[in-house]
Design a protein around this nucleic acid. Structure first.
Lengths: 248, 248
DNA sequence: GCAAAAGTGTTGTGTATACACCCATGG
DNA sequence: CCATGGGTGTATACACAACACTTTTGC
């Protein structure tokens, strides 16, 4: 374990300020040996979408190979807002759903970096136009990525799959109106296993989060499917997302 | 929404480095107006324990009022390791369980700070010696706290209560051996509602995570209770905690 | 009329809940 | 012998999984 010369009294007042920015009123740290520099903060976002049976991830070209969209947080915004901006800038896509994943400390470049991972979902309707300067990659056949990017993706997959079970996240991957088969297809794609049609429909109807529209989709030589809409009411994502709106 | 003058290309290579530390090879940002300084990083830990029917939180005296234990991350450690160190330094307690909660960006002091929230559990046996320079506070009657501290606590409570349902976290709040009534008491304290004794015992026994010891606890004029031990085997915390060990 | 996807019910099995009494001990 | 908490079983409701056929349409 590292020596604790850099530690600050855990019960002390406002956090100490690193030398580059610290004012002169910061007496506690004068004697600290080789004062710790502040790390860089890096928001990384993983964007998921589904398209014809595949779960896709947005990756952009990097100096070497590929990588997740990333960017710096803005001091005036919440982290969530910064993440939203990064998604928008990096992909031109308006995400439907955004969730903070995990924060980790890495040294992948010579510099010390704190990475805040975010997961975003965009609906498959908006997906076909691939993100500017980037491309959609099938999550099952990703190019080699940095260790940190890989960790963010692995974790996002675990979280996304788990959340399918007890939330309605999947709706954020679909366009405004959709058929029940499309919804089931999204579930099956993400979980990579087949689901029973009748049980699936019963559950999702019983949950009451869908309202049927009067329209139908006729897209082949078969019976047309009723289009449903997601009842935007209260989107019980609650579980893992903080109950408060992040803010200052 | 903030203007995007400070933004960096989300598809670019390694993260840009703030001026204080940046090398000369960082051409992309030369023209950026009023380059953003790096925020301070602040780890905040909420420590829970249970003692005679109350859920307690460790708070320390601060310049004004009370606050959660806090500290800087160390560049050489994972965030988890830094959080562990902060808990240890601030309270003298060896936590049994540590979990990252959420990261947020605040401006509670004039400085811009990124707060990484952690939750730690310590067993009620170790609790009575109150943390050095701090005190245990009943979670239902906390003193006024900073907005950020309050958010961390609120979120930790939600997470802790939710996790009681599908993990074994509660065991980390109890000493090595304990009676089923003590375990049930911990659940009831955290959830603040009564549970059915028979159903509780059936569930917890059926789950197979307890092994009875040969000892009994006789602590009153009534039948002695069998002491159980937590089978440390595989502690299925899995769900929300990243499957990877955080690292560089 | 046939291919192709939409739509629809029942049954069994396991899991969670509600509920009340006897047991062992110390004083 | 009595007060105190430890310990036990059953009946019911509900959630979930397995399973196959009819309907509507385009060609």
């Amino acid at each position: 374990m590292v020596d604790e010369g850099v530690a600050r009294d855990p019960w002390s007042g406002p956090p100490a300020v690193a030398p580059a920015v610290s004012g002169p009123d910061d007496a506690r740290l004068d004697a600290a040996p080789a004062e710790t520099p502040r790390p860089a903060i890096d928001i990384r976002a993983i964007l998921f979408t589904v398209a014809d049976g595949a779960l896709l991830v947005a990756l952009g070209r990097r100096d070497v190979g590929w990588g997740l969209p990333r960017g710096d947080p803005s001091p005036l915004d919440t982290l969530d807002a910064s993440a939203r901006r990064i998604v928008r800038e990096g992909t031109g896509l308006q995400e439907q759903y955004l969730e903070q994943l995990y924060t980790l400390s890495v040294r992948e470049t010579p510099d010390w970096t704190i990475i805040v991972g975010y997961m975003a979902l965009v609906c498959s309707g908006a997906a076909p136009p691939p993100p500017q300067a980037g491309t959609w990659h099938d999550v099952t056949t990703l190019p080699p990525l940095s260790h940190a990017d890989q960790m963010v993706i692995d974790y996002a997959l675990v979280r996304l799959r788990a959340k399918l079970g007890y939330t309605n996240v999947a709706f954020h991957l679909l366009p405004q109106t959709f058929t029940l088969s499309e919804l089931q297809g999204a579930y099956e794609t993400i979980l990579s296993r087949r689901l029973d049609k009748r049980n699936f429909r019963r559950r999702v109807i019983a949950s009451g989060i869908l309202s049927p529209t009067s329209e139908k989709r006729r897209d082949g030589s078969h019976r047309p499917a009723v289009l449903y809409r997601f009842r935007a009411n209260e989107d019980h994502e609650t579980h893992l997302t903080p109950p408060w709106a992040e803010g200052t």
